[in-house]
Amino acid sequence: MNSATAIEAFLEMMSAERGASANTLEAYRRDLDDAAAGIGGLADASSSDIRAYLDTIAARGFAASTQARKLSALRQFYRFLYAEGLRGDDPTGTAMAPRKSAVLPKILSEAETGRLLDRAAEEAATAPPGMSQVATTRMHALIEVLYATGLRVSELVGLPVEVAQRDQRFFMVRGKGGKERMVPLTEKARAAMTAWLSARARDAAAVESPFLFPAASESGHLPRQVFARDLKGLAARAGIRAARVSPHVLRHAFASHLLQNGADLRAVQQLLGHADISTTQIYTHVLEERLVRLVNEHHPLAD
Rank of each mutant, 00 (worst) to 15 (best):
E123Q: 13
L116K: 00
R115C: 13
A97I: 09
T94S: 12
A95N: 03
A102Y: 05
A121C: 05
E123K: 03
L108W: 00
E110G: 10
A125K: 11
V103Y: 01
E122D: 14
G114H: 02
T126M: 03
L104E: 07
S101F: 06
L104A: 09
S109A: 12
T126Y: 01
A95R: 01
K106C: 04
R119H: 11
S109N: 04
P98A: 15
T94Q: 12
E123H: 11
T126C: 01
M96Y: 05
I107R: 00
I107M: 14
A97M: 07
E123G: 03
E110P: 00
G93H: 09
A124P: 04
P105D: 10
A127M: 10
K106P: 02
L116W: 04
A125E: 15
P128V: 09
K106N: 14
R99V: 15
A125N: 06
P98N: 08
E112F: 00
L117F: 06
A125L: 11
A124Q: 07
E123W: 11
T94W: 08
M96R: 07
P128A: 08
V103A: 15
R115P: 01
K100W: 00
T126E: 10
L117E: 13
A111I: 12
E122L: 09
A121G: 07
G93S: 13
T113V: 10
L117P: 02
R99D: 07
A127C: 13
A102L: 15
E112A: 12
R99F: 07
A111K: 03
T113S: 12
T126A: 08
A124C: 09
P129D: 10
M96V: 14
S109E: 09
I107A: 12
A120W: 01
E110I: 08
L104R: 02
E122Y: 01
E112D: 15
A120P: 01
P105K: 04
T94V: 12
E122W: 03
S101H: 12
R115L: 13
L117C: 08
R119M: 15
L116Q: 05
I107F: 02
P105Q: 07
I107Y: 00
S109I: 09
R115Q: 12
L108V: 07
A97H: 05
A97T: 14
A127N: 10
K100F: 02
A124T: 14
R99Q: 14
K106A: 15
E112G: 03
I107W: 01
